[in-house]
Amino acid sequence: MQLYGVELLRGLGITFSHFVRTYVKGVGRKFAQGNVRQLPTQDGIFTVPYPEEKLAVPERLRVLPFLIYNGNTGQPATEESIRCTACGICAKVCPPQCIWIVQAKDAVAGKPKPKPAEFTIDMDVCMNCGFCSEYCPFDAIKMGHDFELSNSERDKSHIFEMDRLLVPTENYAKTHPGAWAEEEAKRQAAAAKKAATAAAAAAAAKPAPGTPP
């Protein structure tokens, strides 16, 4: 026979133990320095009090895309330093089609140059999927981590032009250290390989001593 109320009390006991543990573990708690990563052993108080504390930001986090130029913080971007070559793969792979690119043209001859003249992302259409960054062959577009973007105006401020998209490599290396190291290693390997082939080609081009021309 079931005794009515026993299970109810047991349930209340579980709730009460949660309640007590929250206080016991929470007493004297100070705001954590740096970002918080909650572990499976997390017990008691579960709250991460934003904005005093923030959750740990994984490197792969994707919020809004940004463009990269080679340079240090504070250094302005120049056409040469912008990595984007206006190849258009990001615009082609973008599911909601929120990337708009105008290819730059030579001022004199009018020939197309591998640089963007305009690069626009409509943040009100972007779905933060990260395809642009994943498929960019030049590591020129990456997904940013900044989520504190709320504002009261959308008509102008949500259309990101190049001036708001460009981020120097120094900042990128700080926010995405793992990806940065990996990409740099790849780039150096590629450069070394290129140098080696160039040297080999130069060696092959130069006639070996003793052979008739």
Partner: peptide, 22 residues
């Protein structure tokens, strides 16, 4: 009439809190 816009798809809970603070 909208007072605050929160970009993101979807905005994380922290982004919503930021919107609330705005």
């Amino acid at each position: 009439p909208v007072d605050v816009y929160i970009p993101g798809c979807p905005p994380t809970p922290q982004a919503l809190l930021h919107g609330l603070m705005t």
